[in-house]
Simulated assay, not measured.
Amino acid sequence: MITRSPSLLHCSAPDEPDLPAPGGWQRQLAGAIRDPAELCRRLGLDASLVPGAEAGHSLFEVRVPEAFAARMRHADPQDPLLRQVLPLSDEQSTPSGYVTDPLQEAQHTARRGLIHKYAGRVLLITSPACAVNCRYCFRRHFPYQDNAPSRSQWDDTLDYLRDDVSLREAILSGGDPLAASDRQLSWLVERLDAISHLKRLRMHTRLPVVIPDRVDGPLLDWLGKTRLQKVMVLHINHANEIDDAVIRACQRLARSGVTLLNQSVILKGVNDSVDALEALSERLFEAGILPYYLHAFDPVVGAAHFDVSDQRADALVDELRTRLPGFLMPTLVREIPGEASKTPL
């Protein structure tokens, strides 16, 4: 069993020369590209040749930070990063079996913004916002307006956690939890820290990937103060998402005692090849991140064009296993509503 020293678990933000300026990430978030035509223009593409971009944007708005757009290949409409964020006419199709709540999360909302599906852990909708709007997102239709707790409602949620002594882990999710301010996150984590039966703080986030400057001094400060073991599950689908700035952000997190894992989704036209999946695992490890889950596609309305069959996914993973050591192999899983855990395929 690997343990971390108390100095790592309780450290404050390190005095590092590469720390981004505080608040810079918020300016980048506010300046994200929010127009599909503008995104195409930046990449040297003719927006008129992208059918359905405007219609898709009206269904689920485009949001792409400049730092993420800069990693896309110029004048390549098939770029795997671009495909994740650019609306297409395919989004307007509604094949049978595709629904707005594929994981049936509404049935497990125990409090406003609190989802309790699995034993020992609860998920908190910490922020309704994301830094990037991924077209395949299973929560693209999530009723965030009904799951944004006020301060008094957060107190009710915290009472729920205090009363259930079987809970060991609080998961911050969203949206993206790191889209919330450090002041709000510090307030929440301090209160989670005071619940004695909680052992771990897990965060599911894409922000350190799409805006690496999010990992700044104020974030590292409140992370360093908690007694809870810290796990950050990043969401990276393709090796090209990881540039030097992402690696430096991950190094800052690791030095603050954060265990870094990755979950990805198998997506048609993005990473549905053995070469792409192998390159992703290798690049993750270079950045200090361990592959964790490879999710089978969730059938959410508007994203059917990303679907990869379970049979195809199984075949890819079988071949991938011949190329990678076990510690770089993500577990292929499907989340089935009503099951007690993720289901390995």
Results as ranks from 00 to 15, higher is better:
Met1Phe: 15
Thr3Asn: 06
Arg4Thr: 08
Ser5Gly: 11
Leu8Glu: 07
Ala13Met: 14
Asp15Asn: 11
Glu16Tyr: 07
Asp18Tyr: 11
Ala21Tyr: 05
Trp25Ile: 02
Arg27Glu: 13
Gln28Gly: 04
Gln28Pro: 01
Leu29Thr: 00
Ala30Trp: 04
Ala32Val: 12
Ile33Arg: 10
Arg34Pro: 02
Ala37Trp: 04
Ala37Gln: 03
Arg41Phe: 15
Gly44His: 15
Leu45Ala: 10
Asp46Pro: 00
Val50Glu: 03
His57Tyr: 09
Arg63Met: 02
Ala69Pro: 11
Ala70Met: 03
Arg71His: 04
Arg71Ser: 04
Asp79Asn: 14
Gln84Ala: 07
Gln84His: 10
Val85Lys: 15
Pro87His: 01
Ser93Thr: 11
Thr94Ile: 00
Thr94Phe: 00
Gly97Val: 12
Tyr98Asp: 05
Glu105Asp: 15
Glu105Arg: 11
Tyr118Asp: 06
Arg121Thr: 03
Arg121Gly: 00
Leu123Met: 15
Cys130Phe: 02
Asn133Ile: 06
Cys134Lys: 01
Tyr144Arg: 12
Pro149Tyr: 12
Arg151Phe: 09
Gln153Lys: 05
Trp154Asn: 11
Asp155Cys: 13
Thr157Lys: 07
Asp159Pro: 14
Tyr160Ala: 13
Asp163Phe: 12
Val165Thr: 15
Arg168His: 15
Ile171Glu: 04
Ile171Gln: 05
Leu172Ile: 05
Asp182Trp: 07
Arg183Asp: 14
Ser186Thr: 11
Trp187Val: 12
Arg191Pro: 09
Arg191Ala: 13
Asp193Phe: 05
Leu198Gly: 03
Leu198Val: 06
Arg202Gly: 07
Val209Trp: 00
Pro218Asn: 07
Leu219Lys: 06
Asp221Met: 11
Asp221Asn: 14
Gly224Arg: 06
Thr226Ile: 11
Leu228Pro: 08
Gln229Cys: 00
Gln229Asn: 03
Leu234Glu: 00
His235Ser: 02
His238Ile: 05
Glu241Gly: 03
Ala245Thr: 09
Arg248His: 10
Gly257Asn: 01
Val258Asn: 01
Val258Ser: 02
Thr259Arg: 05
Thr259Ala: 13
Leu260Val: 07
Leu261Ser: 05
Gln263Thr: 06
Lys268Met: 12
Gly269Asp: 04
Gly269Trp: 03
Val274Lys: 02
Val274His: 02
Glu278Ala: 10
Ala279Met: 09
Leu280Arg: 10
Glu282Ala: 08
Glu282Pro: 02
Arg283Ile: 04
Leu284Gln: 07
Leu284Asn: 06
Phe285Gln: 15
Gly288Glu: 06
Ile289Phe: 06
Pro291Ile: 08
His295Ile: 01
Phe297Glu: 05
Val300Asp: 07
Ala304Met: 12
Asp307Ala: 12
Asp307Cys: 06
Ala313Arg: 05
Ala313Asn: 11
Val317Lys: 11
Glu319Cys: 09
Leu328Asp: 10
Pro330Met: 09
Val333Ile: 14
Arg334Trp: 09
Arg334Thr: 07
Lys342Ile: 04
Thr343Ala: 10
Leu345Trp: 15
Leu345Pro: 05
